[in-house]
């Protein structure tokens, strides 16, 4: 687009990434409901601003660790969305050859070290990744995404202490969508919450409105800048809301409908679109970006349905070298 400033172009790219994540997950939820995608997907619809605002400040060499609700992190880090959709469908050509599924998507080519089916498990892994980066003198950092539920697991405490102790280049991103599965997390969390716990271990924490991608971008830029400058780990507590249920088929009957409705009124995509329009970007261009994202993901889903199943022999490969299954 000619005539736009660099800053506007960057914001348009963020809008595109958020639209792509949402379109991907709309297709993923539909595929799970129809049974075309086996197993479970955990949609992050409504939380796109966190993944995109953080990853907009990462380079390809930087690493991320992710969660069971990780499609957004992967796409924002530059993972191949088509391969991801094939993976969700269990097909050959998927990110992991059909052996991982939604909860184990990884794309090492872009530094995406893996979603994780175990709450909080990415935290120690991110610490070690940062230690290796230091040992090999790589110019890179690690962003570690986890949910609010993870702060009640032991590895959270261990990891905060560990990262602070060794001053590791890690950005911890707590995506606080208010819920841990079917439970309101505040009902099972004592004390002052994620940021207070991080600070108690010596990791400086910043709270941000995760439904405002520009706010996330600004804070992430600052924190990541500090990390790159050698300041040690930083903690970003991003408040957001999970629009959908815990999984693609959870109706989320445990929370008031008005609450979920109100969150839709704070939509990070619409808020950024409004900013862009105020900056002079045409409404038609924004509609075009969203339509293109929808078309892209629909075509990935169609491609997934047409893709072959993995060769059954693949079930026995990549287990181990010594003592591999006969």
């Amino acid at each position: 687009m000619s005539g736009t400033s660099n800053e506007t172009a960057r914001r348009i790219a963020m809008l595109r990434d958020m639209a792509r994540i949402r379109a991907f997950e709309r297709e993923a939820v539909a595929a799970m409901r129809s049974g075309e995608a086996p197993g479970v997907v955990h949609p992050s619809i409504g939380q796109e601003g966190v993944a995109v605002g953080v990853c907009a400040n990462l380079r390809r060499a930087d690493r991320i660790t992710s969660t069971h609700r990780g499609h957004g992190h992967a796409i924002a880090k530059g993972a191949d969305a088509r391969a991801m959709m094939l993976e969700l469908h269990g097909r050959a050509g998927g990110s992991c050859g059909g052996k991982g599924g939604s909860m184990h998507i990884a794309d090492f080519a872009v530094g995406m070290l893996g979603a994780n089916g175990v709450v909080g498990a990415g935290i120690p892994i991110a610490c070690g990744a940062a230690q290796a980066i230091r040992l090999t003198k790589e110019d890179a950092i690690v962003a570690c995404f986890f949910g609010d539920g993870a702060v009640n697991r032991g590895p959270f405490l261990e990891g905060m202490n560990w990262a602070a102790l060794y001053r590791l280049p890690v950005l911890f991103v707590c995506e606080d969508n208010g819920f841990a599965a079917f439970t309101r997390n505040s009902a099972v969390t004592a004390g002052g919450g994620p940021a207070v716990r991080a600070e108690a271990c010596g990791v400086p924490a910043t709270v941000v409105d995760g439904e405002d991608v520009l706010a996330v971008d600004a804070v992430a830029a600052d924190l990541i800048g500090r990390i790159r400058a050698g300041a040690g780990p930083q903690f970003l507590h991003a408040k957001c809301y999970r629009w959908e249920g815990h999984t693609g088929t959870d109706a989320a009957a445990y929370r008031p409908a008005e609450e979920a409705q109100a969150a839709r009124g704070r939509d990070a995509i619409r808020r950024l679109a409004a900013v862009l329009e105020a900056e002079g970007v045409a409404g038609a261009e924004i509609i075009g970006i969203e339509a293109q994202a929808a078309a892209e993901m629909a075509s990935h889903r169609a491609a997934a349905l047409a893709a072959p199943w993995p060769d059954p022999g693949a079930a026995y490969t990549d287990v181990q070298d010594a003592g591999a299954p006969a």
Binding site: P124, I125, A126, G128, A130, A132, I133, W162
Partner: peptide
């Protein structure tokens, strides 16, 4: 530190980074 989960998990993260 006496942090067995992180001793083990950090070892994995470090292996994944070469």
């Amino acid at each position: 530190p006496i942090s067995e989960s992180t001793i083990m998990g950090a070892g994995l993260g470090a292996a994944l980074c070469g």
